[in-house]
Simulated scan of single mutants.
Amino acid sequence: MAHSQIQKVEANVHIKASADQFHDVLCNRTHHIANIVPQMVKSVEIHKGEWGTEGSIISWNYLHDGKICVSKEVVESIDKEKNKTDFKVIDGDLLKHYKNFKFIGQATPKEDGSVVNWVLEYEKQNSHTPDPYTLLELTIEMSKEIGAYLTQPIITK
């Protein structure tokens, strides 16, 4: 019997925004990410359900390795107390290379902001498929930008 090879890569990103703020954007205001990081994420749309609910289906148009890619994902689980959201990829470019792909984002409060832990869980289509380090890099950059956006001073006139 073929053993499924679930692998993972992960990273921690320190941001100045609170864990609650980051989770709120990632979970409830996902569509705003395209406004915050237009250079990385072109659009985030909802297909089924509502923002911030388990089982809702969203699609991301994003720039990865110089190409516009699409990822359709189901919000698999949301843990508000742990500021954690799991996205399972159900369609799109990633599934050309991976049998399964999941993004797990969790923000943990720290004294000066929070630490966002990203875990990318995946199963390769074949042994030639690269590990998704460039995608992990993208989620790290995106998290830093969201953190910076959330903590920028509000300019009042």
Rank of each mutant, 00 (worst) to 15 (best):
M1H: 09
I6T: 10
I6V: 10
V9P: 00
E10I: 11
E10H: 10
V13R: 07
K16L: 09
A17N: 00
A19S: 06
D20W: 07
F22Y: 14
L26Y: 05
T30A: 08
H31P: 03
I33C: 01
V37L: 12
P38N: 02
M40P: 00
K42C: 07
E45C: 15
H47F: 02
W51L: 08
G52M: 03
E54F: 00
G55N: 03
N61I: 07
H64E: 13
H64C: 08
D65S: 15
D65E: 13
V74M: 06
E76Q: 13
S77N: 12
I78R: 01
D79H: 01
E81C: 09
V89L: 10
I90Y: 01
D93S: 14
K96Q: 05
H97Y: 08
I104M: 04
I104T: 09
G105M: 10
A107M: 09
D112V: 03
S114H: 10
S114C: 15
L120R: 02
K124C: 04
N126D: 13
H128V: 11
D131Q: 14
P132L: 03
Y133I: 13
L135T: 05
E141D: 14
E141V: 09
G147T: 02
G147W: 02
A148V: 04
L150H: 05
K157N: 10
